[in-house]
Design a protein around this nucleic acid. Structure first.
Length: 321
DNA sequence: CCTATGTGTTGACCAACGTC
DNA sequence: GACGTTGGTCAACACATAGG
């Protein structure tokens, strides 16, 4: 006999200060949700805090829920979060908890995200948006806001980082990552070898390319170009790289050095021009579009906050003296 | 829709260098 | 030195898009 199973409808929420029914004597976010929606089970997450006693607040809340018969099964779970504003700590702990506790085929999880620190809220959204764990998100609005008591939180609205990751994954699926070439940068007798092709780059372009490859190697963030001019840090690096590889050509070097001395900045149009020229050079040698996607200096982000980077994994880059 | 402006590409222009 | 080649900057133009 096949059982037509009904999923367990479970509400999960952090307990926040606004859920302190004893102190505030009015319904906080969690009670507001339960006043309007029925769940088979309610799970309250609490964390330790110096300022607030969430242990007690959650116990009081359970009493209140039972008294009003808003849900029959109520559980409390302690989550050991040291720093309640640190996404990096909250995200994995919350995710591990969800994965250990629930079974997505049997349980339908709804998270109420109005309670908890902003970082906790952000982690709920990230977990749901990335689909690391399938969740429905709702936000309760207390009566005085005049809003609907419960609104669902829209996903798929395009967190930029996630969209970019999706793009990368799509590209990666097309191309076996193991087939990505190695990029070897020789600093003395400067030359760049991608796969087995030697790429000839003029000095400045060589330095530009090294600049972006070093950033990848050092796990640095992508470069953000300011609207009208390049950072001093950028010019300093280019000067350093120029000196290391092109002692004999000092004309450009002198220009850059005087730029630094006069505290002038490089115009972005120069940067942009050189980036295009660098990428065009690479296109001359490498024809595979999927490979080019990973080895050229690509730009991402929205207008006004564009950033530039090379997407090849750090282990594919070798920088030799 | 239009406008303003950020971003990307191209080539004019200049300096340096090599060759004859 | 004339001439061609190359590398570099920058501005003009082309294109994209946010915001009125």
């Amino acid at each position: 006999m096949q059982l037509l199973e009904k999923k367990n409808n479970i509400l999960i929420s952090f307990v926040g200060t606004r859920d302190d029914i004893k102190l505030l004597k009015k319904d906080g976010p969690i009670l507001t949700v339960l006043n309007h929606r029925k769940f088979d089970k309610v799970i309250l997450l609490w964390t330790s805090s110096i300022k607030n006693n969430y242990d007690q607040i959650s116990l009081n809340l359970i009493d209140e829920i039972k008294k009003r018969k808003l849900s029959e099964i109520i559980e409390r779970n302690y989550i050991d979060i040291e720093n309640v504003v640190d996404h990096n700590e909250i995200y994995p702990k919350l995710l591990n908890f969800l994965k250990a506790k629930f079974n997505p085929t049997e349980d339908k999880i709804t998270a109420a995200i109005a309670s908890g620190t902003p970082s906790m809220q952000a982690c709920w959204i990230l977990i749901a948006e990335s689909n690391d764990f399938t969740l429905e998100l709702i936000r309760s609005n207390e009566r005085e806001t005049g809003l609907k008591p419960i609104t669902s939180v829209k996903l798929g609205t395009g967190l930029p980082r996630i969209i970019k990751l999706e793009e990368d994954i799509k590209k990666l699926q097309k191309i076996n990552k193991a087939l990505l070439p190695k990029i070897v940068v020789h600093l003395s007798r400067p030359r760049i070898i991608i796969g087995n092709v030697e790429i000839f780059l003029p000095p400045i372009l060589f330095c530009y390319y090294r600049y972006f490859l070093e950033r990848v190697k050092n796990n640095e963030e992508p470069l953000r170009a300011k609207v009208f001019e390049m950072d001093r840090e950028f010019i300093e690096k280019i000067v350093k790289y120029y000196e290391e590889s092109f002692n004999e050509y000092d004309v450009n070097l002198a220009k850059y050095k005087s730029m630094l001395k006069a505290n002038k900045k490089l115009s972005v149009s120069s940067f942009g021009g050189n980036r295009t020229k660098l990428n065009n050079k690479l296109k001359q040698y490498i024809k595979d579009e999927n490979i080019l996607y990973f080895i050229t200096v690509s730009s991402h982000g929205k207008r006004g906050s564009i950033y530039y980077e090379v997407l090849i994994p750090p282990e594919n880059i070798l920088i030799k003296k």
